[in-house]
Computed example of a mutant assay.
Amino acid sequence: MSLSTIRINPGDTSSLDHFPKLVVGGPENEFVQPAPLRVRLLCELIGTCLFIFFGAGCAAKGHDLLTVSLAHALVTVWLVYVFGPVSGGHFNAGATIAFAVNGKMKIVEIIGYLVSQAIGALIGGALLLALYGSDNTLGTPALSPGVTVWRGFLIEFICTTILSFVIFFTTSYNTQKEAAIPIGLVVFSSFLLGADRDGSALNPWRWLGPAVFSHTYKSEAWIYTVGPIGGFLLGYVLFRIYKAIWNWNADNQFHRM
């Protein structure tokens, strides 16, 4: 048995093949097979890099709340729209871990996605260093004066819980392209709420890439990893509860009484 066939959740009997497939082999394009893993990993690497480059890049220019929020929302929309049909458009360790718990990713995919995203985040941070120089924080999220660690954590945790629920909700009914706008709007709302409070990462890589190349390490930085990952997992749990409520009558032997 190879890693490429091992489920993260052996008890899930649903299909492993959950990634969207482009229409291939037709006269309108020259793609002769569904996207292989190497292509999906490349999309995750590029997508994460660009999310860091444009999102953190705009944050590095100043603290205009509307500009920073809009920048992250817009880059989310077009990245999900472009790469979503190929790789699923995660670009976020929290999203990948939540999909892994969902039981529809193979172990090799989980590891590959996380490694590709990390590399993309570091490349994005390096590009920002080249663009802004070493005397800039490169848009690294940080707590504003007067904002406690736990308040910062709650911003990350609550916003990513909502984001996770919306991602699972919208992609269960729609394609990634159709889900791109509502996902982007949640990102926009979340950054409007928290960008001037804790810097709003909503994504461990959004913190890591800029932090590594700006040497911005602080003791409270754990909130930008634990908060988003915990939020994505809770959002997934809430979505499963929602599905259970939806399907309750289908499994209830007394539903016809």
Results as ranks from 00 to 15, higher is better:
S134V: 06
E109S: 15
N92Y: 11
G103C: 06
G235H: 10
I155H: 08
F188N: 07
D198W: 09
T13M: 12
W248I: 14
S144M: 15
S200W: 08
V166N: 06
M105R: 11
G120L: 00
L238C: 14
S87Y: 01
V187W: 10
F168Q: 01
G11C: 06
V149D: 13
N92P: 15
P141F: 12
G146P: 14
E30T: 00
I110N: 12
R256H: 15
F54R: 02
E178Y: 04
I183P: 00
L154W: 10
A118K: 02
S189C: 12
P85E: 14
I110T: 15
G55P: 13
T225W: 15
G88A: 11
C43F: 03
Y173R: 09
R197H: 12
K106V: 05
P204S: 08
I245Q: 13
K21Q: 13
P27M: 08
I111K: 03
P20H: 09
W248Y: 15
F169K: 04
I167Y: 06
T96I: 12
Y217Q: 01
K106D: 03
D12N: 15
F254Y: 02
L192S: 05
T67Y: 12
W246N: 02
Y113L: 02
G11M: 11
F169L: 07
A118S: 09
L234S: 07
K104V: 14
G124L: 03
E220D: 09
M105Q: 13
V32T: 09
I162S: 07
L65G: 00
H18Y: 04
V86M: 10
F157K: 10
D196S: 12
A71E: 12
L42F: 00
H18D: 05
S15R: 01
F168D: 00
T67G: 14
A142K: 03
A179N: 05
